[in-house]
Nucleic acid binder design. Structure first.
Length: 596
RNA sequence: GGUUCCGUAGCUCAACCGGAUAGAGCAACGGCCUUCUAAGCCGUAGGUUGAAGGUUCGAGUCCUUCCGGAAUCACCA
């Protein structure tokens, strides 16, 4: 049991015994002591003052005495205002060190016997290449999956590909009209990039048509409906739904191009899935579910034939579930995939990593599922994340301001190469090793840049300022790791002294203890990150740990230390830090490097 | 207009779900490499936490109002 919990539980029972008062467990607050005060953990005693009717200093003293007496690990205490600072015995920290310092799974929980947790992320449309927004989605989904796995959950990563619908037809139609038979092979382009160009082309031509119609005196709304291109693309969608062989053939071909392109990008990002769903496979099931709901009078038909659900009881409006012509809308297929996913995995939880622009959609989805009496309606959890914005605002594909995923990764790799060359520390490395280094470094910088921000918040990316490689960044953390490994490589090969409590209290320097305390936090961090589905907690922890190590490294020599016991203690401490840095970075999906 | 979310240093982000003097990085300025990797370390400067009230021992955090921004309220996905 964690020392914090032990302190909390002790206080709870102590106050009950001594004062006959039951205290709200939530009012007991044990936190790490701030650096400017002496102590390891701090109890805030203000909450007890009212109940016990004593001044805070008195209570602090009383509780401090009791803790020192009854909890073996606590050595001493001091009280400042309403804060009770507790000092743990040095042996507590050393025991912790001895037990865990070489454990590569430190911080990870044993796998639990339980139903799986399904994490859906990525969910691309097959009409355009991935951009920076998708990168955030993919990195979050991947990292959250890793973090949940580290907490013992049985995680299934799934992708739901949006492979049908009018937007897909737009690319197809434009390609037919203006493509002149271009293929990824003939243009040596990635398939997703190629298809994306035709989507943009469609939009351009469509806007031209609309504005021409507006000039002839039509309202914008009329113009948008009547533009010939829109009519053509509607016709194409209809043909697709009817199974027209030419249309379906073209659809298959172009989607295949896109998938091949996506695979390259996923591979570069180090993203993979346990199962891929296609909307074209699930939307029919969604329709069936809506039909069932209609039969049970949970939903209703409007005079034009559209199927609707009345959510006024739930505080929302009516919501369309099927168009009057019977074709499905977005939520229709989500009902289908939820059902399918539940049958496939029998999950305890279904997490959807989807942008916060769809908060309302998921609210509706949950309520519709509840109305249908689906057992998994409570299992649906929307991991809602904020948009990635440019300094001038949102990325807009029509205005060509999207930051392309492949381009950005290229840029990061090039920057990594340039900086590495300037520093000139890679003598002796082969060409392949250097290439691998640039790739890892560039990707690490990008991933960290995105994951260090609280997922719920919108974030800003400025394309004109390249992502930093100094300071609060992945390269800084990787550099720390490389430094550690440099020391480990240079350490003498002699057998280390047996690990005993050879370090006396007076010998553990402040920086060593601070480092040890931080390492001690790691399991709590991993747990918290999972509970909040927030990788940023791990990212920020990894930075703090690296910074603390660098201070320690700066102040104390490891290999040049004359006292062998001290030298070996520091060597093991460095190695332990390396293990935790690697684990933390792994949870972010970032590879470490041993040289840079 | 209704609903929801967000306003923290010039910029990008933290702040342990109400706790001690709001912390980092970047950018700026000044130090530290004959010693384990200077992608580092140390220091200086930078804040009325959008504004005003309120709740209490204590508010960046909770409540109210206002200001500013975003998302959504589609027979788009």
């Amino acid at each position: 049991m964690h020392i914090k919990t032990r302190i909390e539980e002790f206080l709870l029972s102590f106050i009950k015994d001594a004062f006959g008062q039951n205290i709200d467990p939530g009012s007991i607050l044990v936190q790490k002591t701030r650096k400017e005060f002496k102590g390891d953990f701090t109890v805030v005693v203000f909450p007890f003052t009212k109940l016990l009717r004593k001044p805070p200093e008195g209570i602090g003293k009383l509780l401090g005495e009791a803790l020192v007496e009854k909890l073996e690990d606590i050595e001493s205490y001091n009280v400042i205002k309403g804060f009770l600072n507790l000092n743990l015995k040095v042996d507590y920290w050393l025991d912790f060190f001895i037990e865990h310092h070489s454990d590569v799974y430190f911080g990870y929980s044993e796998p639990k016997e339980e139903r799986p947790v399904v994490v859906e992320f990525s969910s691309p449309n097959t009409n355009k290449p991935l951009h920076l927004g998708h990168i955030r989605n993919n990195l979050l989904g991947d990292s959250v999956s890793r973090v949940l796995g580290a907490n013992g959950h049985n995680v299934k990563k799934v992708n739901l590909v949006n492979d049908r619908g009018i937007h897909i037809c737009k690319s197809m139609l434009a390609w037919l009209k203006w493509g002149e038979g271009a293929t990824p092979g003939s243009t040596s382009q990635k398939g997703d990039q190629l298809v994306g160009e035709y989507y943009v082309l469609f939009e351009k031509e469509y806007i031209k048509q609309v504005s021409r119609l507006v000039e002839t005196g039509k309202s914008r709304e009329e113009a948008e409906k009547e533009a010939p291109l829109m009519a053509e693309v509607r016709e194409m969608l209809k043909k697709w739904e009817e199974g027209d062989s030419h249309t379906v053939e073209l659809w298959k071909t172009m989607n295949q191009w896109v998938y091949e392109g996506f695979d390259v990008t996923y591979d570069r990002m180090g993203i993979s899935f346990d199962k891929i769903y296609y909307e074209s496979d699930t939307y029919l099931l969604g329709k069936k579910i809506v039909e069932e709901g209609l039969k049970k009078d949970l939903f209703f038909r409007k005079p034009d034939g559209g199927a609707w659900v009345d959510l006024s009881q739930e505080g929302l409006d009516d919501k369309l579930l099927l168009r009057p012509d019977g074709t499905s809308v977005y939520i229709t297929q989500d009902l289908g995939t939820a059902e399918l996913r539940y049958k496939d995995f029998n999950p305890s939880e279904m997490i959807y990593v989807v942008g916060n622009e769809q908060n309302y959609h998921f609210e509706v989805l949950k309520k519709v599922l509840a109305k249908l009496g689906k057992p998994y309606s409570d299992a649906v959890h929307h991991l809602s994340y904020g948009m990635v914005e440019l300094p001038e605002g949102r990325m807009k594909s029509r205005e060509g301001t999207v930051v392309d995923a492949d381009d950005l990764i290229d840029l990061m790799e090039k920057t990594a190469e340039k900086i590495t060359r300037e520093l000139g520390k890679t003598e002796g490395m082969t060409k392949e090793q250097k290439q691998t280094l640039y790739k890892k470094m560039g990707l690490a910088a990008l991933k960290y840049f995105i994951l260090k921000v609280d997922p719920r918040k919108n974030m800003v990316f400025n394309p004109n300022e390249s992502i930093d490689f100094n300071g609060h960044t992945a390269p800084f953390i990787l550099y720390t790791y490389a430094r550690i490994h440099s020391v480990l490589r240079k350490a003498p090969n002699d057998k280390l002294l047996p690990l005993k409590k050879t370090i006396a209290a007076s010998q553990m320097a402040d920086k060593e203890k601070e480092l040890l305390k931080l390492l001690h936090d790691f399991p709590v961090i991993v747990n918290e990150s999972a509970e909040e589905l927030n990788p940023a907690i791990i990212a920020n922890y990894a930075y703090e740990l690296a910074r603390e190590f660098n201070q320690f490294y700066h102040d104390h020599s490891i290999l040049n230390e004359q006292d062998r016991k001290v030298s070996e203690f520091r060597l093991r401490l460095a190695s332990f830090t390396g293990i935790v840095i690697r684990s933390a970075m792994d949870l972010l999906g970032v590879d470490v490097v041993e040289r840079m």
